[in-house]
Design a protein around this nucleic acid. Sequence first.
DNA 1: CTAATCTTGACCATTTTAGTCAGGTATGTA
DNA 2: TACATACCTGACTAAAATGGTCAAGATTAG
Lengths: 141, 141
Amino acid sequence: MKLTSRGRYAVTALVDLARFDNINPVSLRDISLRQGISLDYLEQIFSKLKKNEIVKSIRGTQGGYVLNKNPNDIKLTNIFHAVDEKVKTVQCKKESKKGCNGKATKCITHNLWDELEVHINTFFENKSLKDLLNNNKETRV
Amino acid sequence: MKLTSRGRYAVTALVDLARFDNINPVSLRDISLRQGISLDYLEQIFSKLKKNEIVKSIRGTQGGYVLNKNPNDIKLTNIFHAVDEKVKTVQCKKESKKGCNGKATKCITHNLWDELEVHINTFFENKSLKDLLNNNKETRV
DNA sequence: CTAATCTTGACCATTTTAGTCAGGTATGTA
DNA sequence: TACATACCTGACTAAAATGGTCAAGATTAG
Ligand code: FES
Ligand code: FES
């Protein structure tokens, strides 16, 4: 199971953004330079974050992005959902009674994978951007 | 983040094996038929499980595989490790002070990804094959 | 002997990832 | 008004990972 760079970048970029957006919009160019993430890739990512109403954009000179919500209301779940970083422990559809690869029934370990998915998602639901900001200011233990 | 079929198959196959190995070795062919997993793929998987001393093999007619340990001592961690299903939340090396892609320092969200990795691995460390057997008996009735 | 099984290694199609590239369009400022 | 800054969009691609298949052989019970 691995976390993609896209998901990592989305969170990192938003933490960066959250730190600086008090006064002015933050440009992707700045984030790119500060965090060492490709500008072109960031643009793809922020396009998704915008569609999901996590950030707002301001065009033109001196423009950039600002958060569209309180950092406390932006959970990792929301961020990951926005950039299609989903937790998938199975192939089969949840609604369907069928198993993976169109098998007639669910497999004998199915409950386990459901549990695992819940376990991971719980982590994402309990972390907000606010937590990450605090966490980082404290230089943390 | 997604769990690979390889990891899922390994666990499913071992649960199947654990159910039947009381008397005789269990052939991969049987597991393949019961669980609907490609025989050739199972062979790759069991080769790794054997190298990691999770199962023993018995060759020849009436041969097959048997568990090499008590189901209680086979954790998901062990199984996943054996088949290279690792939890990776970052690209950078843990030992190194450098960040992802050879950056000079770790990123500002690094702690988060470490936490996440621990959170997931904890789940795997607390589940044994025994748990899955019990679990399954309960739900079967 | 022969059928059932494990053993090994090569091979491959498809999908995903992590970007790059090449254009736009909008807008504050000089 | 010119122009630099920044967002916006879509196409493209190299490399890796995934989820297998295929072929050929070695062991051993019956
Ligand atoms: S994981 Fe899909 S059938 Fe169990
Ligand atoms: S995840 Fe590698 S530097 Fe933070």
